[in-house]
Structure formats: structure tokens, C-alpha cells
Computed example of a mutant assay.
Amino acid sequence: RSYPFAVCYMGITGVELCVDSSHSDNEAKYVRRSCTPNAKVVHILDKNGLRFFICATKTIPLGKEITIPFYFDYHRRSACMFI
């Protein structure tokens, strides 16, 4: 079964979060995964809660697609889209 808008986030030590953006109107849910990404997701925790941001890891030319890393956990034999 495919969940195109669900990703796992493991950027907090000891915590694995699953973020489902299928009901969100935020355009970030359309960012694709890639083995050669040009961006990553970072988080901040503030008084309003946990927030995620997509940040470029290199210069992205105008018109170029923004992509984030995709990883496959061979030990668990499951896909985890690391954002």
C-alpha cells in the first residue's frame, strides 16, 4: 500500500515520528524523495509545538525540483522516507 504523503522523521534522537500530510494544504507535501537530494527537513520546538522546515543543502537553480533524502531500511525491510 502506498502512502505518498507520509514520511518518517528520525531527526530527534531516540524518536521516530510519522508525519502524514495527506490532509494538509501545504505545498511541502509534494516535495519528492531522491537518492541525490538538494534539501533536507529540520525541526524546531517552540511554544506552539513541533515545526518542520525544508532547507536547501546546496544552491538550487530556478526551475529545479526540490528533493529530500529517501532511505530504505534493509534490516527492517521497510521503506522509510527520512525527512
Rank of each mutant, 00 (worst) to 15 (best):
P4H: 13
R32W: 05
K40Q: 13
T59S: 04
V15H: 10
I44F: 00
P4S: 12
H75L: 10
S22N: 07
C18W: 11
H23Q: 14
G14L: 01
G11D: 03
V15G: 02
I68K: 03
I60T: 01
T67W: 02
H75M: 06
F52W: 08
T57R: 12
Y9K: 10
S22L: 03
S2F: 12
P69C: 05
C18D: 05
L45E: 08
S78K: 13
G14S: 05
A56I: 06
I83H: 09
M81S: 13
A79Y: 13
G63I: 01
L50G: 07
C8K: 15
M81E: 15
R76T: 06
E16M: 12
A28G: 04
S21K: 09
V41G: 00
I12A: 02
I66P: 09
L17S: 07
A39P: 01
I60Q: 09
V19G: 05
Y71D: 10
M10G: 15
R1Q: 08
A28M: 09
C35H: 13
H43S: 01
Y71P: 04
K29V: 08
G63L: 03
C18M: 11
V31D: 03
I60L: 06
C55K: 00
I83K: 06
E16G: 04
T59R: 10
V7Q: 10
I68T: 08
N48P: 02
A56W: 09
S22E: 07
S2I: 14
T36R: 03
C8W: 11
P69A: 07
N38M: 00
R33G: 10
L50M: 06
D25R: 08
V42M: 04
P61Q: 13
R51K: 15
C8T: 15
V42F: 02
I44N: 03
F70N: 02
C55D: 01
M10Q: 11
F82L: 06
K64T: 14
K64Y: 03
A56Q: 07
K29N: 09
Y74G: 10
R1C: 06
P61K: 10
T57M: 12
R76G: 03
I60Y: 03
M81C: 12
K47H: 00
R33D: 08
H43R: 01
F82N: 15
T13Q: 04
F5N: 15
H23R: 14
G11K: 00
K40N: 04
K58H: 14
V15I: 15
H75Q: 11
S21A: 15
H23P: 02
Y71N: 09
I83M: 05
G49T: 00
R32L: 11
K64H: 09
C35Q: 14
V15W: 09
D25N: 15
C18Q: 13
N48W: 00
T57Y: 12
P37C: 01
G63Y: 04
K47Q: 04
H23E: 14
R76A: 08
I68V: 05
D73I: 04
M10W: 07
Y9Q: 03
Y30T: 08
R51I: 00
V7T: 10
V15A: 11
D73P: 05
I83N: 12
F82D: 15
K29A: 02
V41Q: 09
Y74P: 13
T36N: 08
F82C: 14
P4I: 14
G63D: 10
